[in-house]
Design a protein around this nucleic acid. Structure first.
Lengths: 211, 211
DNA sequence: GTCTATACAGGGATAGAC
DNA sequence: GTCTATCCCTGTATAGAC
């Protein structure tokens, strides 16, 4: 019955029972992993009988797929919004990282399922999720690319650095805890700075040439 | 029966059957997760019947604990060796990151189990593993701390940066694939450079004072 | 130490009443 | 749409022969 922190990512899901099941599943999958979670557990958290689950979802895996799809769509949207309007490349990178990190921290429960239970998806569902993941990689790489082109960044290995920044953000979902000493926003700010360092940001107004 | 890449971390385990079971379990846990892995599967990979597993390990969880313990001990040892002898702080950080990343890439199968199946450990076993994890955090933080004290690094948030560098290294285990375009060593070199950037390395011979 | 056979529990999914 | 009851499979772990 307990729902803990409500994840507004799933606010639009109807009917009510389907949403409650989704929220219960997110919690359970995050806590115990997909395979260790029983349909009885999920249904219990939603205040329903095990059988009721199958009215709204064909299988347990379909439940995971919905969570994964909505979660990925949200995180990509967050990233897109962040890069949409920024004065320069440095600010674009900072906003992107800050927003992406914040999402992974604030929604660490969903994010954990999204990032670490991929292997439990069926093949077809997995393929659809991979497409969404590629989107976010492309967005981040483009930000770095433009920064290099504009002379704002100094990045010897563009693809590798993009991957590393992405990786850094994603891993927040693994270790973040609301009981920890930092808020999602503080971590976002720290990581934005670290990303700028990784990108070798130059002070505005300078051009290349150095050791 | 297939063992894939042999992980020398477990080379010393005897008797032979116990080692084969351990290797089978590492593979299976990494591929499918602890809970999704059956004892039949593990025994099968070791070329034995399910019952034989229980001659060597009391439970499936004990198997996981052994993997986790040996894995953590190895990664801490790798880190310790790397920082042991280096001319300066920058080189110490670079060697630490490079070695730690290489371990997580080369032993990505073991590392995945070590990093992502912690929750499946029993409470007592979990507590013992946490102690080992703290060691590696302390080693890395100390390297950064000394660098700041020596004026080689510029790190506004020491604890946060140490955590981020650690996180970056660990996440390699999640995405690394031997089929990918980079070798463990190349990733190690890239990440060592990124870590130095995160640490705000100053060219040797300069002292502080700036905006 | 390893096997075959099996006890015993638990979980995904369905049937049928309401 | 939800419930109770239950089918049937799978999985951990053990018993006992060799």
């Amino acid at each position: 019955m307990t729902t803990g922190v409500i994840d507004e990512s799933f606010g639009g899901v109807t009917p009510d029972a389907a949403r409650r099941l989704l929220l219960g599943a997110v919690e359970a999958f995050a806590e115990r992993g997909f395979h260790a979670t029983t349909t009885r557990d999920i249904a219990g958290r939603a205040g329903m009988s095990p059988a009721a689950l199958y009215i709204h979802y064909k299988t347990k895996e379909e439940l995971l797929f919905h969570i994964s799809r909505v979660g990925h769509e949200r995180s990509v949207a967050v990233l897109e919004e962040a890069v949409a309007s920024a004065p320069d490349c440095a600010e674009r990178l900072a906003r992107a990282v800050r927003a992406f990190v914040r999402w992974h921290a604030e929604h660490h429960t969903t994010a954990r399922v999204v990032q670490y239970e991929l292997a439990a998806l069926g093949e077809e569902h997995y393929a659809r999720i991979v497409l969404l993941r590629r989107r976010s990689e492309e967005i981040l790489r483009a930000v770095l690319e433009e920064g290099v082109a504009a002379g704002e960044f100094d990045i010897p290995d563009l693809r590798g650095t993009a991957l590393a920044v992405m990786s850094l953000c994603i891993d927040v979902a693994r270790w973040f805890s609301p009981e920890g000493r930092r808020t999602p926003d503080e971590i976002g700010a720290l990581y934005a700075d670290l990303a700028l360092r990784m990108a070798g940001r130059r002070p505005a107004g300078l051009t290349s040439s150095s050791g």
